[in-house]
């Protein structure tokens, strides 16, 4: 008999085995996604204890709700969705709020007409390949993320770091695809602005010739 618990075993098969009571299958699923959940939580919360809490809560919740998981989404999307809610809950608690709703009404700032214009435009002094190797760059990246509103931060992390599609991100956060797109654009533009102010070459700063937006 071949061991079904190898790295190539699809998530769906492990889910089926776990639902049937196979602890090994559940542990294999946990091992497969725990690093991603922890990384997402660290980038959302920047606090190891909180990130650990989110990670443990996420997999306890997976255990509790596994029967209810019908596979209408990818297992990975489902796990990241649970983790996202857990991370937001901590952020709201820090702010003294009790609501965890992600489905809240679209804010006035979330439409395409109010997308901020790029201000500091300059080529970077170094390529991303060189930058990722520098230790202070992680700090810079995390600081820029922290300055994003958490709703924009989460969309950026799920889409651009975790690699979910627009559709999957929308499903994970219970948002419309249009809303995800606008939030993603805001996040990308704001991060670009922040990073370029530090990484851009001031000697090569460009000024728009028709810089007359109000």
């Amino acid at each position: 008999m071949t061991n079904p618990l190898n790295p190539e075993t699809p998530d769906g098969e492990l889910v089926r085995l776990a639902k049937a009571g196979e602890l090994d299958a559940f542990e294999a699923l946990t091992s497969r996604y725990e690093q991603r959940v922890f990384g997402l939580a660290m980038r959302m919360l920047r606090q190891e204890q909180d990130a650990e809490d989110v990670t443990q809560q996420t997999f306890l919740s997976v255990l509790e709700n596994l029967e209810g998981f019908r596979g209408e989404a990818n297992f990975s999307t489902w796990v990241l969705r649970i983790a996202s809610h857990a991370a937001l809950k901590i952020i709201r608690k820090r702010k003294g709020l009790n609501t965890v709703s992600l489905e809240e009404a679209t804010e006035p700032s979330d439409d395409l007409n109010s997308i901020p214009h790029p201000e500091f435009i300059a080529d970077w002094r170094q390529s991303p390949e060189h930058l990722v190797e520098r230790n202070e760059v992680r700090r810079l990246l995390d600081d820029a993320l922290t300055r994003l509103d958490e709703k924009h931060r989460l969309v950026f992390l799920l889409r651009d770091v975790e690699g979910l599609s627009i559709q999957e991100t929308a499903a994970a956060l219970e948002l419309s695809e249009g809303n995800v797109k606008v939030r993603l654009l805001r996040a990308r533009l704001q991060l670009r602005e922040d990073l370029t102010r530090v990484l851009g070459d001031p000697a090569r700063q460009l000024v728009r010739s028709h810089h007359h937006h109000e």
Partner: peptide, 14 residues
């Protein structure tokens, strides 16, 4: 470059 930097950045080890 911004997206690449975040995507390829050092992961957090649990």
């Amino acid at each position: 470059q911004t997206i690449t930097l975040y995507k390829d950045g050092q992961p957090y080890a649990m």
